[in-house]
Design a protein around this nucleic acid. Structure first.
Lengths: 330, 330
DNA sequence: GTGAAAGCGCTAACAC
DNA sequence: GTGTTAGCGCTTTCAC
């Protein structure tokens, strides 16, 4: 049961006060060069590290950042977590992963807890959370970065810019003669509706097409829902020849069902996903998708958080460019 | 900037002392039913939650559990993280994810930090860490659970029992007439060598085969290394007709290279992975693999940690049964 | 440029 | 069955 080395131990060894040790560490007040050297030597000799609990209690701020996502097991979010933790480690911050399982109550509870515990920051991809759930937080002083398709209240936002990529996807699909597009979207009660659907719908007319409500299947972001959605679309009397999916997990489900039904992809139906999750290039046919780079999202979120910790108070939105990735499914 | 509600506020409203509030929360001493009710009402009314920083400072134990893994973006570890956080949430514990990128110094640094900060526990999948790096920790009082193929020093361990599954894999492979097995293993300096290789090698004679050193390719646990390893094995003069991979990421790399080389899987070469990562059933041919259930590992780790927090001091090892999953690659 | 000391909110003796 | 209170280790104000 080794004893913990405290700042008092360091101060004693260096022959200074704990205040000086603290200031050497934080740099918040000038310290004479020789004093600094002595203190640093003492720190090294004793292997001292600050007690973050004591620091948090004193400052009212922890070194934790909550990453609140619908499903960390989804490769997109797993990659987001990996990069975020890497970026934040440099700032001395830790990432606490929180799975909401796409449940609004979980989202609210986790958010509230992170605020209560005075986390250094929160990075959240809302799924069913309402803007009003976030409004109250604007006043708490806990920096919140939302990763969502649209700006979301008065908080920092990382949002995709998928217009060009979606247009490219439509070009590709029409170039191979498709005329009847459809979409497998997320649930109807998802936060902010489905901006990926809205974008597709708004661009379709430029290609002489439209995306009527009847050609939108809905479900959770699961493989099963993707399969069910695909089956639904295939049984429609106005059967589509190009199916867009709100994410790659749904697209893989659609692929499952296509094989089961004997529908040739991309022969009979072109299939386009979203995200470019790690498995997108592994399935056969390889999935054509609109890549939303998790690494860039994580880096942007880390930057926004850093800005807040440095004192910025006005909300910012960073747009991350999505990229059309043509493979063999469309 | 809302004010934080403290225990003193609750005590005042309930007309009791902070000690009583504390005991209501912890249950560490008897409280009269009516007192308890009053306190609980006050807690609910004020929306009080304990300040974990203060609690940690006082008790010397935080509510954080470090999950230290080579790569959270690997679907196996992502699933481990998801389930672990779910299991620990019930105990009021949070999961801090730490990526080591398979680097021993990172592993050591992260481990040391978690100990220094008096984390409630550590769950680690060592990759290059040496047993001696862990030895010192046995004395610190921080519960460590190691998820590794072999028991690892005097700490709690979650280890796979893959003997039956590996035997089944060998049966399958020999049933289709294969005689020359090979393996794409991890790096030679990995923690504990490569127990999956050792197991395969020890079972091979039962099937009249052997696994000579020349038929073992080595590399990091990446897709690229899998491809390189496969190429190496294919160029061997004693060309194998069955290749086992230490994990599914390597196997997918092997699949890439097989396609590139025009080697038919499973026609010319049978391929068997390990883990059953989420993408194993998505690649074509679908990957035959030895499933090591991340969910069960996470649950076992959570149980072991719980045991430690409840006061157990003797190390325990839980064996999780691996399962042979026959798909089309072998 | 440095030190003394208050106090963050909680837990757990100790006292009754 | 309940209350009083010291003190965990740090940061920061105030004083010099």
């Amino acid at each position: 049961m080794q004893e913990r080395v405290t700042m008092a131990d360091v101060a004693r060894l260096a022959g200074v006060s704990t205040a000086t040790v603290s200031y050497v560490l934080s740099g918040k007040r000038a310290v004479a060069p020789e004093t600094r050297t002595t203190v640093e030597a003492a720190i090294a000799e004793l292997g001292f590290t600050v007690n973050t609990a004591a620091r948090s209690l004193r400052t009212g701020r922890s070194s934790l950042v909550a990453l609140i996502v619908p499903d960390i097991a989804n490769p997109f979010f797993a990659q987001l977590a990996a990069t975020l933790q890497e970026e934040l480690r440099a700032l001395g911050l830790h990432v606490v992963v929180c799975n909401t399982r796409a449940d609004r109550e979980e989202e609210r509870a986790l958010l509230a807890e992170a605020v209560q515990q005075r986390f250094a920051g929160i990075v959240i991809t809302p799924f069913r959370l309402l803007p009003k759930d976030l409004e109250a937080l604007t006043l708490t002083g806990t920096p919140v970065t939302v990763s969502a398709d649209v700006p979301f209240g008065a908080v920092d936002t990382v949002a995709p810019d998928a217009r060009a990529a979606t247009r490219q996807a439509l070009e590709r699909v029409t170039a191979s003669g498709r005329r009847r597009i459809a979409m497998i979207a997320g649930p109807h009660d998802a936060t902010g509706g489905d901006p990926r659907l809205d974008l597709l719908r708004s661009l379709a007319p430029q290609f002489g097409m439209s995306l009527p409500r009847q050609l939108v299947a809905r479900g959770e972001h699961t493989r099963e829902a993707g399969a069910a959605g695909f089956a639904e679309l295939m049984s429609h009397r106005y059967r589509p020849d190009a199916v867009f999916c709100a994410n790659d997990v749904l697209a893989v489900g659609a692929l499952d069902k296509a094989q089961e039904l004997g529908v040739d992809i991309p022969g009979e139906v072109a299939l386009v996903g979203h995200d470019d999750a790690s498995f997108a290039s592994l399935v056969r046919p390889r999935l054509t998708t609109i890549r939303y780079p998790a690494e860039d999202v994580a880096r942007a979120a880390a930057q926004l958080l850093k800005g807040r910790l440095d004192g910025r108070t006005v909300p910012r939105t960073v747009r991350v460019k999505a990229e059309f990735v043509a493979r063999s499914s469309a």
